[in-house]
Nucleic acid binder design. Sequence first.
DNA 1: TGCAAATATTAACAATGTTTATTATATTTG
DNA 2: CAAATATAATAAACATTGTTAATATTTGCA
Lengths: 196, 196
Amino acid sequence: MERKKIQEERMKTYFIQAAKEMLKAEGIKSINVRSVSYRAGYSYATLYNYFKDLNDLIFLCVRDFQDECERSILEKIKNISDGKEKIHAITKSYVEYLIEYPGIFELFFLEKMNNAGNKKEISELIYTFLDRICEKHWNVCKEKGIINSAQVEIKKKQLYFLIVGMLVFFENRNQPSNYEEFISLLDSQLDNFFEW
Amino acid sequence: MERKKIQEERMKTYFIQAAKEMLKAEGIKSINVRSVSYRAGYSYATLYNYFKDLNDLIFLCVRDFQDECERSILEKIKNISDGKEKIHAITKSYVEYLIEYPGIFELFFLEKMNNAGNKKEISELIYTFLDRICEKHWNVCKEKGIINSAQVEIKKKQLYFLIVGMLVFFENRNQPSNYEEFISLLDSQLDNFFEW
DNA sequence: TGCAAATATTAACAATGTTTATTATATTTG
DNA sequence: CAAATATAATAAACATTGTTAATATTTGCA
């Protein structure tokens, strides 16, 4: 039954679309079985005909947001020259995107995955996101001979841990306590990181 | 009324003690108004005679855990010589403590503070924890002339962001997916960090 | 058209946070 | 000491949310 599959997928997108809009605009706190379903135009119980549970649905938004986030970053940094500078710009752009949409930051890094459907696959998508976008430029650095392979493996991860740590303190603990201070801290940390 | 105050404080400790035990043993997921109150030996409504709400009570555990954590770290690293090595050992100990008690990690860095009582004060306690324990040893490094003041300010924070980022991925996203890999990653990151 | 299967919805339940009203206890005062 | 009053503890009740089961509705097709 081809038609059945198509219709089912279409139904899913209605719910996912609703969840995405709410995540971007209001964050995870605004999402519950009833609110998402009503925004999708259905009763709350209908959600369970298409998703194992709410957690499952929420994490299906990750893929879409990653695509959108990647496009947003690439558009912003297209004029930066390849290599180290580009990694720097991509990283800053990524942080800015996550600051602009705190709900997406929560989804990527904080929300409990419980028994989400493709838990392993999705968490790996998140863990490798920055590396995937930067891969080419790390290779450029290696080719230029300004850093070696072993160092790259360490510094790639270090960079991701650094920005996630900063974001956790800012979003969850209000440290630093305003946006300007945060950006200034981010810049000083990134400048320092890229001194090699 | 001095007696009244004493009694009130004693009552509070019953609830806080119950919450602490549960946090350490089972994590935040095990805590709710009813479970904490029953463990403290009272009805769930009694909790509201002593705390604004559950969130408030939970964050009153932070101070105690910080003290305990500090004692645990200092005991473990007492034989390491002062300075850079000590900062390294303290940091590793801190991570090990947070891995041993994931509920405390959650409390320190992930749990939403909503309208917790001394929100500002508590989040600052958490943000500055590592710096406070390491302060003396950063000063030793400065005195030895192996690093300057400006660098210290940046690297202190960088170190904290690094470990919190790692812990977020490990606890929330199961990356890396087992303890041994995590420790190996931690060691490689710390070794790299302390190369100066 | 009428029936079987698929789909959607309503009703209901369980868990949890919180408030209100009531009961039990302690303290003060005449 | 006993009555009046304040204080503390509790039970009952309500709201929100996730989830399931039973019921109603729609749809595809013989």
